[in-house]
Computed example of a mutant assay.
Amino acid sequence: MKLPIVAYGDPVLKKVCAPIEETYPNLHLLISNMFETMYNASGVGLAAPQIGLPIRLFIVDTGGDDEKDRFKKVFINAEILEETGEPWAFNEGCLSIPDIREDVMRKPNVRIKYYDENWELHEEEVTGMPARVIQHEYDHIQGTLFTDKLGLLRKRMLKSKLDAISKGYIKADYKMRFPNQSRRR
């Protein structure tokens, strides 16, 4: 089932999320719905807060035609242990902040510990674009948005666009939930 994506301005996007237990209700269905939602919105990652759930869960699928180049994983109760390398800029976007893309500096390598959908514990090193997507989604479960990483001047320049998104004055190609949308629209 495709779920509505929570738009910028919703308080759930600014919360540090809680860990979950293996007994979390309907977890496999939730993960399946998250993948369907992400694919429908043409995303490469989706975190639980983006669908209104303040839990430490996110998914990543960088796509690609070749299975060896594809990075598709579920991250439960993830913890980034280390970020290394020379930071590099990349133009990022976010399904919760449609139509805004900005250069964000991130380190190219991460070491992360997490449980997968079968509750197997992993600790691994990830590099390049998959590492960047992981860092972006991990930020979501930490209550951080990519716009929080921008300079003060750039944030001020985006303020009216961000306010418009929170009020629903935007057309997205997927279902969204807007925190400050007026009922009379």
Rank of each mutant, 00 (worst) to 15 (best):
F35H: 11
C94F: 07
E86Y: 01
K72S: 10
F58C: 01
G52C: 11
R101W: 00
D99P: 05
A41L: 05
T37Y: 05
T62L: 11
E102L: 12
T62C: 13
L27S: 01
E102Y: 10
N91I: 10
E36H: 09
N33I: 10
K72W: 03
G93W: 05
R70G: 13
L81C: 03
L27K: 02
P98A: 09
E86N: 14
I97E: 04
F75K: 07
I55L: 01
A41D: 06
G64D: 13
T23Q: 08
G45P: 00
A89I: 13
G52Y: 02
K72T: 03
K68D: 15
M38T: 02
F90M: 03
V74F: 05
I80Q: 08
N77G: 08
P25K: 01
A47H: 00
A48M: 13
P25A: 12
P98H: 09
D61T: 03
Y39E: 12
H28L: 14
N26A: 15
A89P: 09
R70Y: 04
R70F: 10
G63Q: 10
N33W: 00
M38D: 04
I55K: 08
I51H: 08
Y39W: 12
N77Q: 00
K68C: 13
D65I: 15
E67V: 08
F71A: 11
L81E: 08
K73A: 12
K72Q: 12
L46E: 03
A89K: 15
A78W: 00
G43S: 06
L57W: 04
E83D: 03
G85Q: 01
L27D: 01
Y24Q: 09
M34D: 04
V74I: 02
N26H: 13
I31D: 06
L95E: 08
P87H: 02
F58K: 02
V44D: 04
P87V: 05
A48Y: 09
E102S: 14
M38E: 01
A48P: 13
T23P: 05
A48V: 10
E102I: 12
E86G: 00
N33L: 11
E82V: 03
D69P: 06
G63C: 10
R70D: 00
R70A: 07
D99K: 02
R70E: 05
S32Q: 13
L46C: 09
T62S: 13
F35D: 09
F71Y: 15
P25M: 09
A89Q: 13
N77C: 04
G52N: 07
E67F: 08
I55T: 02
I51C: 06
K73E: 08
F35W: 01
V60Y: 12
P98E: 07
E86W: 03
T23G: 06
K68Y: 14
L53V: 09
L46M: 03
T62Y: 10
